[in-house]
Amino acid sequence: MDNVSRRKFLGWSGAAAAGAGLLAVAPRLADGHKPATNVTEPLVAYIENPAGGRISLMAGTQEVVLHDPDLVSRLMARLDGR
């Protein structure tokens, strides 16, 4: 993954998953974990097409596009309550 630790990202998203395809993630989470990067602004993950396996991570004016079908699948599973 580019710039952002996948493990940390999964941790954030698991704590803050909300809404199909659009996940707003705070940089510091309730469990005290800090982001692995120096991101200090809210981070938004956008999945336009879950079947495509691509995630756009946006913070500030930056955007990183990931291709990670497994991660997308796990996020969608969280939305399904699994």
Partner: peptide, 15 residues
């Protein structure tokens, strides 16, 4: 405008 806006929350991404 930034690429993504969250109602009541932040805007993020490239302009």
């Amino acid at each position: 405008r930034q690429k993504v806006g969250v109602q009541g929350g932040p805007s993020a991404g490239p302009f």
